[in-house]
Design a protein around this nucleic acid. Structure first.
Lengths: 217, 217
DNA sequence: CCGCATCCGATGTGATACTG
DNA sequence: CAGTATCACATCGGATGCGG
């Protein structure tokens, strides 16, 4: 199968399993929930089809991914999802995302962005201490893509794809505006001028800024 | 320079910087302190020399590693060390190590082990809650290599290379014995039979087992 | 020795095309 | 939709060389 570092070291062994190109990005995709092959290809944007197939095979062999055929009424679709061991990679993805986000330039022109990438991105921003005693939900919609909810419940927080019923804050904006608003580079007034739509009380928006701050520089 | 995923995503950007082969293992080496080129080559065991040189150049260009020439009295040696941004990767390495250690088989025949790999390995084992109110130090020496100290101070913990002055526990053993002792597969009596040397009070050893437990299965 | 650079065969990657 | 097949090319790994 794949090559190995052949070292008795937890890090080396982890990289033997998920260190090859595209593997952790596939994990990122699956952290948003089960996905079918073409959805994965779409979310990975530029991954060659043969590599995706190869990686999915390896990840199944390594017990990270499970392939399942949904017994749908109409047509049977096959989806991939993380195994329990694969889900444990969430902490790894969070730390890498946190580290990378610090030096991620605001928006280098034309780089694609997908809404479900917010799932690990928001997890990386989450500040548990700021969330103590707070229980509410925020909804973010970027570039008109599928909305993402962030559910705060007294010190814990979780991001999930999909619209939220009665969010404390509902924010819709393009990527640049969202990034600059959350970093404090622009204020709410300026964001609205740029076409953002913001619902909810100012206090809730302030809490959200504290609970999901941008990466510290 | 190197290739990029070209995605507006913290994880993808992090992998653009540290996702290539050997890069995170070089970070592991440097987490134990500044090291010279040949020490790195030795600690990486099987990394090709040209790849090491290439990676070190890339990591300098990316601001992860700093190359410094020590103005030594006798001969000027050049060492590599982590920049501040590079040191922030400690959390990433810890999470990957923790994840990988869970499925790292006890000792697949003949795989090399280096004492300084314990620095991230112990950080991955560390349980802050168990360390609350405890302030003491443990010294581990595996396979007769350089000893490693783990310094606990009321809820915080840190591993550093080198012998410890007055440790609460001093443990010397071969790798297998250490792994099986810490996992509970064998007891102290059996470890001693296998040639381990253990100093310190039983209570301190018990605390160490709680503060630095093996990865949960 | 230390700190790399060069060479070369094996392997992995990426773009495109194609099939059940 | 869910992958295979093909192929040019980049990277990797192992060995070796080489000046300071």
């Amino acid at each position: 199968m794949a090559r190995s570092y052949e070292q008795h070291c937890g890090l080396a062994h982890a990289l033997d399993l998920v260190g090859e190109r595209w593997t952790l990005l596939i994990v990122r995709e699956l952290l948003a929930g089960p996905r079918r092959y073409t959805d994965l290809a779409d979310g990975l944007v530029s991954a060659p089809s043969n590599l995706l197939a190869t990686r999915l095979r390896e990840m199944q062999a390594n017990g990270i991914v499970v392939r399942r055929t949904l017994p749908a009424p109409a047509s049977a679709v096959t989806v991939y999802e993380l195994s329990e061991d694969g889900r444990r990679l969430a902490a790894v993805v969070t730390e890498l995302t946190r580290w990378g986000a610090r030096t991620l330039t605001p928006s280098p022109e034309g780089r694609p962005f997908k809404a479900h990438w917010l799932v690990p991105a928001l997890a990386a921003r989450f500040q548990p201490t700021a969330a103590a005693g707070v229980s509410e939900t925020y909804e973010l919609q970027i570039d008109g893509q599928e909305p993402v909810g962030f559910y705060v419940e007294d010190g814990t927080g979780e991001a999930r794809l999909g619209a939220v019923e009665n969010p404390a804050v509902r924010l819709a904006a393009d990527l640049d505006t969202f990034m600059e608003l959350s970093s404090g580079a622009i204020d709410v007034r300026e964001a609205l001028v740029r076409g953002a739509r913001i619902e909810g009380e100012p206090e809730a928006l302030a809490r959200m800024s504290t609970i999901l701050p941008p990466p510290a520089r």
